[in-house]
Write a protein that binds this DNA or RNA. Structure first.
Lengths: 147, 147
DNA sequence: TAAAATATGTCAACATATCTGACCAAAATA
DNA sequence: TATTTTGGTCAGATATGTTGACATATTTTA
């Protein structure tokens, strides 16, 4: 049995705290721009997922966001009102509604993303390629978790 | 100029998404136990910081949490009521109140931490020492951010 | 084809955790 | 003594989530 220092409780607590701070800072950066448009973090999370998964339907989005459809609906209603996203019927199953960024959406998303990007960009720029790969690997293991 | 693949927008978006998911999963694990005691994530964040900084005062805690004193006050009131934390006056400056875990607090904190620890522990266990070091380095750069 | 399942939308009520702004008191410091 | 610092409190607002109930259109299944 190796003496795995980095598995000691204090080290784990360190990781948890770093994760909390990194998340908080990363997601507080874009709040200002969002607020100007009377939107919040929840709208951005949905917008981000639509941007990265153009044509996603409501159900898939719900699963990724892990919120109820009532909560999501409120968010989507406002995003549609502001012409940031649009819905098109799935031709193979017209019950399903597929989500896309609308005209304003692409521009707005890019603006919000830029505000958030700076922090990550600088962090990665000052890290080497290997560090970034390992950083993402550990994050993925945390996400998939539970042994 | 090197061709830094990992600085492309798509890679940055990947990182942001991983960070969001890792945070969400890590902090959703302990919610069940907290809820049994009618506490939430906010109480745990405060409890965690008191555990890691025994004798911290209110102002320092406010700065670490980045919330208003009104919000913190409500959280601390409940933690004190449940005998999870206690306040002692600073003898050098009796305006200041220093926070410590109370009897119940140590036991309760450990229980909640264990529920959260599993996920991180497994992720780190399946990573090598170098990966963990680099993982933490990148997180720190993200936190200190802004060039 | 009739019944069941699926995908989405909506209403209402409520819970939680945050915020702002105003104001107060005790203690330390200039 | 006047000002600043530290902490507490009240009241109201906002953002985001929850449950539960119900409606509609469409697809799938028996």
């Amino acid at each position: 049995m190796k003496n795995l220092l980095y598995l000691k409780d204090e080290q784990i607590k360190d990781c948890i705290q770093l994760l909390l701070y990194a998340y908080r800072e990363t997601f507080s950066d874009p709040l200002e721009i969002l607020k100007k448009n009377s939107l919040g973090a929840a709208h951005y999370r949905a917008l981000h997922l639509v941007e990265r998964n153009e044509g996603i339907n409501i159900n898939e989005l719900l699963i990724k966001l892990k919120i109820t459809k009532q909560s999501l609906n409120r968010v989507l209603k406002e995003l549609k009102r502001l012409k940031l996203i649009k819905q098109l019927k799935d031709k193979n199953d017209t019950r399903r509604k597929l989500l896309y960024l609308d005209q304003n959406g692409k521009k707005f998303y890019q603006e919000v993303f830029e505000s958030q990007k700076k922090r990550i960009f600088n962090a990665l720029k000052h890290s080497d390629s290997d560090s970034v790969i390992k950083f993402k690997e550990v994050l993925k293991k945390i996400i998939n978790g539970k042994k």
